Each structure stands twice: as C-alpha cells, then as structure tokens.
Simulated scan of single mutants.
Amino acid sequence: MTEPLVSAKMITYNHAPYIVQAIEGVLQQKTNFPFELVIGEDCSTDGTRAIVLEYQRKYSDIIRVITSDNNVGAYENIRRTSKACRGRYVAFCDGDDFWHDPSKLQKQTDYLETHPECGLVYSSYDVYHPKSNKTIKDFIRYRNWEMPKNPCLLDFIEGKSGIGLGVLTCTVMLRRHLYEEVKTSDPYLHLSGHFRMGDTQLWAELSTKTQFHYIAESLATHIITEESATRSKDVKKRLQFSISRAEMILYLCNKYNLTGSYRKRYENDWSNYSLRLAFHLRDKELANKVRIRKKSFTGKEWFRYFGAKYLVIHYTYRTVAFLFSLFRKKNSQWL
C-alpha cells in the first residue's frame, strides 16, 4: 500500500443503512495524491461488519478495517482507529454521514499544503432527513450563520455564530500531528470517555494552538438519524448528554481560567438538566446533589426537586407537563 498523504478516518457501529454511501463517498474522491480509508468497526450486529470487510477485500490498496472479536466501545474504537492512521492529514467521516463532493479531499489538502499556519479546515454541509426524505442544502448558509474567520476558544464556549454546529466532524480535515498532540496532552478530556461528546472539546482546544479555515461550500452531507451519539429518543440519554456537555464546558472553563457569565451559564445548564434527570429517574441522591450545588430554585425546579423524592408530586407534575406538551410546537436545530 502506497504511503498516503491523507487518512480518511471512519468510525462505524450499526450503520448498515448508510455505510455503503459513506465508503463510496471516500472512494469517489479525485486527488493527485494517495489517500487511505481507515474504518473502525466495533462488532456491529446489523451486518455493517460484513459490508466493510467486503469493501476491504475489493479495495485492499485503499481500505483498512480496524476491528476485534468483541465490542470495545466508542472511545476505544476511536483511539485505535486514530492510531492506525498514517497520513500527514486526517479527514473525518463517520459511517452515517458521507462526502458528496468528489473534490473535498483535494480542496482541503491544497489549502493545508499552501498555508502552514493553518491546522484545520472545515466546510459547509447538507443535512439529510431520512424520515421525510428532505435535504437542506448548504446548511450554514441556510441558517445564515456567519462563521468566524479564525474561531477561538470563547467561540466554542459561547456557541457563537453557530460555531458549535458549524464545525461539523464530517467536514473537517486537520494535521495529524496536532490531532495527536492535543489528544495526548489531556487524556482525561479527550481519551477517558468521561464526556459523551468527543469532537467539541477537540476543536475547542485546537483553536488555542492553530488557525482554522472555513471553506464556504457544501462538501459533505450530515444524516439526521434517530439514534446517534448526540441524538436519541430516550429522554434519559438526551439529558445525560446535555449534562455531560455542561460538565465538559465547565472543565474547559477551569482549565483556561474562564470566569463570570460563561461559568454561570453552564452551571445553570448542569443544574437544570441534572434536576430534570433526577425527576425523570426519581433519583433522590442526584436531586440533593443539585440542591447543594444550586442555592436557589424557581417554582418549576422545586416541583422537580420534590417530584424526584415523592411519588404523588412526581405524577402530578408529569400529568400537567404532558397536557402542556400537547400544545407545544416542536423545534429542531436541524430544520
């Protein structure tokens, strides 16, 4: 296998409906340099593994599959797949997204090769909703987000100008040495699995070390699946993800000595989501933990606090909340 200039890193688990399109999106890339596709397959139960192994057999000069006899979990799968990448640059595409532009790798590599001061490039993207078969083209332009010319740590902390959703993983290419440097510099933040998201903190810390460049073209498609690392029908999973995000931002605030409104906002987020989870699970211990950490409650928060402790209050509140939900319009950040 020729030494690649770019490694396309693909993490997959139970992506059978989407994995072929993801792989084909990489194979269709037209470049003047060699690239590889490294697929981290974590013992899927839906046929994904057989699909990726067949692609490896057909394209053994490009594709390498990293797998094992047992499921190792998301963080270990990411770690071992990242370690297997050999290119100077790493481009990301999970098994439920795809690159629709065959010149994506060439455009991003050309920029990094001619701009040594830049460590990460990303682009706009399309958003596809399988349930409605609807595609929103050029999502960043569609949402009228103005991406910062060179985002800094505070942009990620604040979620400024759509940057939190703007730097989407399937659009990113970065220098591998920076990727490895940042991840190994803080194993708790990036490698421990303590936080439920894996990329937001990576982009945030990279912004303190290098310049970013935004390509104002849609080069990839993000698929809105019902279940993913960041989305779920399960209320418990959604709340746990939101709590973890607040904890991660607070960790960054501590690490970089950020105080004031930033910390207060995410302390409030942590309390809000934790109290909602305590109510949902009727977890008295978590409710007490929130009570100790947050000195004052609103009326709604008192109901959730006592609802976590007392059955009658719990079901009364849930009944009232359900009735209100019948008249509430549902919104999505992806629409």
Rank of each mutant, 00 (worst) to 15 (best):
6 V>A: 03
7 S>E: 09
8 A>Y: 08
8 A>H: 11
8 A>Q: 12
11 I>Q: 09
14 N>E: 11
19 I>Y: 02
20 V>K: 12
23 I>C: 06
27 L>N: 07
33 F>E: 13
34 P>I: 13
42 D>W: 00
43 C>N: 15
44 S>P: 03
44 S>A: 04
50 A>T: 08
58 K>T: 12
60 S>E: 11
65 V>Y: 02
66 I>C: 02
81 T>M: 06
90 V>G: 04
92 F>E: 00
97 D>N: 14
97 D>S: 11
105 L>T: 08
111 Y>F: 15
117 E>W: 02
118 C>P: 03
124 S>G: 10
127 V>Q: 00
129 H>E: 07
136 I>M: 11
136 I>D: 05
136 I>A: 04
139 F>A: 00
139 F>V: 01
140 I>N: 08
142 Y>C: 00
151 P>W: 01
159 G>H: 09
160 K>A: 15
163 I>Y: 00
163 I>V: 04
166 G>M: 05
176 R>I: 05
176 R>D: 00
180 E>T: 08
185 S>W: 02
187 P>E: 07
187 P>K: 08
189 L>E: 01
189 L>D: 07
191 L>H: 06
192 S>H: 08
193 G>D: 04
194 H>M: 11
205 E>I: 09
206 L>Q: 06
207 S>M: 13
208 T>F: 11
215 I>K: 01
217 E>A: 07
219 L>Q: 02
221 T>F: 03
229 A>K: 02
235 V>M: 10
240 Q>R: 13
241 F>P: 05
243 I>V: 08
247 E>Q: 15
248 M>G: 10
255 K>R: 13
258 L>H: 08
261 S>N: 07
263 R>K: 06
267 E>D: 06
269 D>S: 10
270 W>F: 07
273 Y>S: 00
277 L>T: 05
281 L>C: 12
283 D>P: 11
284 K>V: 05
288 N>G: 13
293 R>T: 14
294 K>Y: 11
295 K>R: 15
302 W>Q: 04
306 F>H: 03
311 L>G: 05
313 I>A: 02
315 Y>Q: 06
316 T>E: 02
319 T>A: 06
321 A>K: 11
322 F>I: 07
327 F>W: 15
333 Q>C: 13
333 Q>V: 14
